[in-house]
Amino acid sequence: MNNGRITELLDKYWACETSISEEMELQEFFRSGNVPEELQPYVTLFTYRRDLQALKPGDGFEERLVGSIRKAERQNRYITIRIFEPLLRIAASVLLVTGIGISVYLFSRQNSQVFAETYNDPEAAMQQATLALDKLSRAIQATEEASLKSLEQLDNLELDWSEIDSLSTEIVPIDPDFNKDVKPGRL
């Protein structure tokens, strides 16, 4: 590469007008070892980058990287649980107390229904009680009337009661000593 070309490229380089490929060209020139005396101060400027470009993390860095991410993930999960642990305890306690409270309330409500006072007004209660008793009275009266009516109908049938009574006399009364003579072995 002639000096004219290098001077031209260097001027472009200082003016930030070089392309990436032209900068690569300069790098190659300065690495060649045939650098004029006046350009010697800039040798390292164009040669150091190749060494830096070759600079890489140590062996197994990618594995360490992925490992550290997984570790952080696990820690985050653990931290989340730890952060919420007191809240979980409180929530569990509240749930327990609420559950017990609801159970007690339902139980007492169920029991109190048997003896519950459903009327605040005594007059209304009396009225309802009278109504209930009246209904009961009417029901009893109706059944009494129905019974009397049935008896009247029976009288009207003109049955011969003596025949009906004779049926009862033919039935042999049960003798309590009937099985006394039976030997146990025959059973």
Partner: peptide, 17 residues
Amino acid sequence: SAEAEDIVQDMFVKLWS
């Protein structure tokens, strides 16, 4: 180098979060 590796590692962990 060791510091640079730590920095990149930290960056990756923070980015992942």
